[in-house]
């Protein structure tokens, strides 16, 4: 179950990321850092979170995502929030 959630997150996240940074989804790795490797500035990171939380109807707070650094962090953190009943 959790793998399914995370896999779907990954597909959707890569789709959004690729549009934001102009890279093909298959060029983006789980370990890529949003800022240093993918070049997202803080507002693009916010847009990424906005789009994914909008799609999954998550009510995120800033503190929920403060420690997110890599693509994998985003996937794990959001999947965890979804499992813990965080959706709005």
């Amino acid at each position: 179950m959790s793998e399914t959630i995370e896999e779907q997150f990954r597909i959707d996240l890569l789709d959004i990321l690729s549009k934001l940074v102009g890279l093909e989804p298959d060029k983006i790795k789980n370990a890529d850092r949003l800022r240093e490797d993918l070049g997202l500035d803080s507002l693009q990171s916010m847009e990424l979170l906005s789009r994914i939380s909008d799609k999954y109807e998550l009510d995120l707070e800033v503190e929920d995502v403060m420690n997110v650094v890599t693509v994998d962090d985003v996937i794990k953190q959001l999947a965890e929030l979804l499992r813990s009943g965080k959706p709005g």
């Binding site: 916010m46 906005s50 939380s53 909008d54 009510d59 707070e61 800033v62 709005g88």
Partner: peptide, 12 residues
């Protein structure tokens, strides 16, 4: 327009 607290979803 922000993700915070589901603001964007509610706005939409």
């Amino acid at each position: 327009f922000m993700f915070v607290s589901g603001a964007r979803r509610r706005f939409r």
